[in-house]
Design a protein around this nucleic acid. Structure first.
Lengths: 223, 223
DNA sequence: ACCTGAACACCGTTCAAGT
DNA sequence: ACCTGAACACCGTTCAAGT
């Protein structure tokens, strides 16, 4: 845990701010988001407090308010940052619509379940950041090629969004429940094996659930 | 806001505790749950603090710990209490499986969205109370009649659970967003009309989304 | 412009003490 | 058995002040 730094550099042209303005702000939104994610990865969702994020950055809690308005902003920024990878490698526009839906949904779900805190916060904060929007839009674009009327597509979009969010939320809840039930009573090797098995099972379930929705969409289109 | 009561009744046989034991405990789990729900209905999810629940009941915050272990227990108890109505009037065993799924899912969803705090907490606490289990089991029982293999049914169960939770969560989030966007700029009559319209639209969407899943289940069974 | 420091009005939870 | 009261170790956020 870093102490608020005490600025004891020797006085010289190089350290002195180059006019009225400070040379480099100690903080920035990016640094704050990075610190927030580091804290969340290490200590989990309940550890997200203004004071702890500030400590992570060697700064006072009140300094954060220069860059964000409230604690919730940190949550929203961290969540969207974590969705950046998922939004980076989206299927191209020539991808058939069904596989585009599948891989985009899976990427979204994986980003949320990779870090437990992401799924926990996603259930509590609406996902409105640019990366969340990019993911949503890719799914919407794919459904545009799915046939059916506007109404059908609007329903399908909601169904997929609900499914992704619901699946991510219940997956991390079940993991937490399983971990609590296990207690401390298992050796590391067995735990690692069963964890990777469990992950494969979870992912298979997610894919099948999405397939079920796609089957429904196809069936609807046929009638 | 009730003050902790100051016990100034006249001394008599009727007021005096009838031996070592107290006549009637001032508190009980039921009273605590009722107070919690009253508070949540009035002031919303962020108002749920041990101190405020205690004030609601005219008691000190620390007294609650005789009946519950932690704040989360209040959340779990309040959530399950709110699901009691929904679990009370479930479709009978002779109901055709598709309509049993539809009405049970709808009851579950409605219970969660009727009070915003219920959906908010449902996204954050696993629903493991007796009433939540009764609702889940009714859906599971219905799916037993849906045909298909065990694996298909397990997938369908997850899909429905994810859908209910996801739909409830996003519905209340959208309502909150819409309310924030409106600000204070609308008269009460117009607001009431548009709120009831919006509710009808929401419910129609939910029903259609469930229908989409059911179409998927049917299609799967056919192949 | 950017950060500190003090302060306000809260939190959940523990534990010893009363009755 | 059941409730109080004091206490501990926190919270988010505001605002004036420093540089």
């Amino acid at each position: 845990m870093a102490e608020p730094r005490d600025n004891q550099q020797p006085d010289s042209v190089f350290t002195r701010p180059p006019r009225g303005r400070r040379a480099q702000p100690a903080l920035s939104r990016e640094r704050i988001v990075a610190g927030t994610i580091a804290l969340l990865d290490r200590d989990g969702a309940p550890a997200l407090t203004m004071r702890k994020v500030a400590a992570e950055l060697g700064v006072h809690a009140t300094s954060l308010y220069w860059y964000v308005d409230r604690r919730e902003d940190l949550v929203d920024l961290a969540l969207d940052a974590v969705l950046a990878e998922a939004a980076a490698g989206l299927p191209g526009p020539d991808e058939p619509w069904e596989s585009a839906v599948k891989t985009t949904a899976r990427r979204f779900y994986t980003a949320l379940t990779d870090r437990a805190w992401a799924a926990e916060f996603a259930g509590v904060r609406p996902l409105l950041g640019p990366n969340a929007l990019a993911l949503s839009r890719r799914i919407i674009a794919a459904l545009a090629d799915s046939g059916g009327g506007d109404e059908d597509r609007a329903v399908a979009i909601r169904a997929l969004a609900n499914q992704i969010l619901g699946a991510a939320t219940t997956t991390v809840a079940m993991r937490a429940g399983a971990a609590a039930a296990r207690g401390g009573t298992d050796d590391a090797r067995a735990a690692a094996v069963s964890a990777s098995d469990a992950l494969a099972v979870e992912n298979a379930y997610f894919d099948q659930v999405i397939d079920l929705l796609l089957a429904g969409i196809r069936a609807r289109r046929a009638t």
